[in-house]
Structures are given as C-alpha cells and as structure tokens.
Amino acid sequence: MKKAIFTLAIGDNPMYKAAIETFHKYGERVGADVIISDSLHYKLHVNNKKFDASPAWSEKLYIAEILKEYDRVLYLDADMLITPWAEDIFENYPLLDTIYMFNEGAYKDRSAQAEQINKVLGDVHWPKEQEKMVYFNSGMILVSKETGLFNDNSAEEMQKICNEVKFYDQTFINYLIRRDNIKNVSVDKSFNRMPLLGNDDYKAASFIHYAGRGYREKVPMRDMKYIIDYCDIYKDQLSQSEVLEYKQQAWHWYMLKQQRKTKLPIPLLSAVFGLFHPQHKY
C-alpha cells in the first residue's frame, strides 16, 4: 500500500522548515512519502476580508490528484508538529472507506458555517453528538481512494463559497462528507492537538497543531513558539548549532513581520524588540 504525507508550504518561514523535517522523520517510520506543494494548483479569487481567508486553502483539493498514485494520504497543515513519540496513524485508523479527522465541533460551535454553506450550495443535514454539531478540523485529514472525497466537486464550487463562508476549505470538506455520505470517524485529540483544548500537556500529543495563536503564551509570535517547542522536543536529535540557527531564523522572521508593519530598518527593530523579549532575541 502506497502512503503519502502531504502539506502546503510556500515561502521561507522557519516553522515550515521544521514542520517538514518532522514530517520526513515520521514518514520514514511509517513508510510514507512526503509531498510538498510550494505553489498553488488552484487560483481562487478571495476578496472578503471579513473572514480573513487565503487562496492557499484551496490546495487541499490537490489530495484528489495525489490519490491517483497513492492509496492513502495524510494531509497536514504546515503549522503541525509531529513528535518523535507519535503513534502510527495509518495503523490506528485502518478503514479505507472512512475519512478520519478531528471533531472540533465538540469544543466550538460551527453551526454558523453550516448555515453559510447550505445557503450557497444547498441544504445538507449536519448531525449532532451530545447536542453539539459535528464539524471536523481540516488541519489533519487521513483519507483513502475508497472514500471518494473530492470525486464530485470542483474548484468552481470552492470559488462560490470562498467569499461567503468562514473557514471555507474545511467547511467545504465537512459539507462534502454530509452531501456525499462519506463514512467518517473523529480521531483522538492526540492526532490533532489544538490550542482550543488548552495548554496542559499538549507536548505529549502525537501531532501538535499550532492553529490560530498557537501556544504562544508570553512568546511574541506563534511561529517562534513553534520553533522553541521544536528545538525542545527534538533536543536529542539537533546539534547546538542547528538549534541556534533555527532560533535566529525565528527571530529574523519576527523582525520581518515588524518591518512590514513599521517600514523601519531591521537592526533598529531588533534592538527595540530585543529590550522587550531578550530571552527570544538571537
């Protein structure tokens, strides 16, 4: 059986570099190839700033192309960190006719998104568990050919909803699961450990998802917190020079973000922000 781990990573964000390293290490352990999209295959016109949406979210459609060559695909967002102790998700969830995702609807009410997409593409039934609507997070998707996901859809449908529906990509996937009667199972939280579950013991998970603000606490940027955690979790596998390089890159990435906001030179910004975050300045 051919297995693939798929992600989208465009640009030089050090978080993406570290994430891909963890994907490769995991792929070697579970016998899966790693496939990275570094450019978009689908061009959506996203212009509704209210939902803070990105055209890049459409890249999940490319799963259908990968499934022409592979039997199973594990899609992961590039803000996911796979830990060295991660369990084999392919073994834990073996059914080929079933899509596996994490039910964030048990923790967040996403009924507004269901109403939005029903209004555009037509009504489907959204089931509930314990009085809460089932709604899967699309940061982690385990899918096989047999599910038929993305068989009867198009980028045109995504274009219809991308300016009308919040979280348009994952809401679309949830919609397809309902519309096309795809069997589905919610994975254990360890395979998509999200900040909405709190910060306690999150590093014990198999897949840590730094969605939204991540686990930043007093760290000034989510991407920087990711690198800090990566260097800690993989401290036995990284040299001191590698750790230093990652932390320097993370600080520089933070400075680039500040430069885009202020238009001030990076050396000045580094000196000023270093006064507020001396423990993170490299």
Results as ranks from 00 to 15, higher is better:
residue 3 K to T: 08
residue 4 A to T: 10
residue 4 A to Q: 06
residue 8 L to C: 03
residue 12 D to W: 03
residue 12 D to V: 08
residue 21 E to M: 12
residue 24 H to K: 15
residue 26 Y to G: 04
residue 26 Y to M: 05
residue 32 A to F: 09
residue 33 D to V: 14
residue 34 V to Y: 01
residue 40 L to V: 04
residue 45 H to W: 07
residue 47 N to V: 03
residue 48 N to Q: 10
residue 48 N to T: 09
residue 49 K to T: 05
residue 51 F to P: 10
residue 52 D to A: 15
residue 53 A to R: 13
residue 53 A to P: 07
residue 55 P to Y: 00
residue 57 W to G: 14
residue 59 E to T: 03
residue 63 I to M: 11
residue 69 E to H: 09
residue 75 Y to V: 15
residue 76 L to I: 00
residue 77 D to I: 08
residue 78 A to W: 02
residue 81 L to Q: 03
residue 84 P to T: 01
residue 86 A to W: 06
residue 90 F to E: 14
residue 90 F to Y: 14
residue 92 N to C: 05
residue 92 N to G: 09
residue 96 L to C: 12
residue 97 D to L: 10
residue 100 Y to F: 12
residue 102 F to D: 07
residue 102 F to P: 08
residue 107 Y to V: 08
residue 119 K to V: 00
residue 120 V to W: 04
residue 122 G to P: 02
residue 123 D to T: 12
residue 132 K to Q: 05
residue 134 V to H: 07
residue 139 G to P: 08
residue 140 M to R: 05
residue 141 I to P: 10
residue 146 E to P: 04
residue 150 F to H: 06
residue 151 N to D: 15
residue 151 N to C: 04
residue 151 N to E: 12
residue 156 E to P: 04
residue 158 M to R: 06
residue 159 Q to F: 12
residue 161 I to G: 07
residue 171 T to I: 06
residue 172 F to W: 08
residue 172 F to Q: 02
residue 173 I to T: 13
residue 179 R to H: 09
residue 180 D to F: 04
residue 182 I to V: 14
residue 188 D to P: 06
residue 189 K to T: 01
residue 194 M to C: 01
residue 194 M to P: 01
residue 195 P to V: 01
residue 199 N to Q: 05
residue 208 I to M: 00
residue 211 A to V: 04
residue 211 A to S: 14
residue 212 G to V: 00
residue 216 R to A: 13
residue 218 K to W: 06
residue 226 Y to C: 03
residue 228 I to T: 05
residue 233 I to Y: 10
residue 235 K to R: 05
residue 237 Q to E: 06
residue 237 Q to G: 00
residue 239 S to L: 00
residue 240 Q to V: 13
residue 242 E to R: 03
residue 246 Y to I: 05
residue 248 Q to H: 02
residue 252 H to S: 05
residue 253 W to D: 10
residue 253 W to C: 11
residue 254 Y to D: 08
residue 254 Y to V: 11
residue 254 Y to L: 15
residue 256 L to D: 03
residue 264 L to C: 00
residue 265 P to Y: 09
residue 265 P to M: 05
residue 265 P to G: 02
residue 269 L to R: 00
residue 271 A to R: 15
residue 274 G to K: 12
residue 277 H to Y: 15
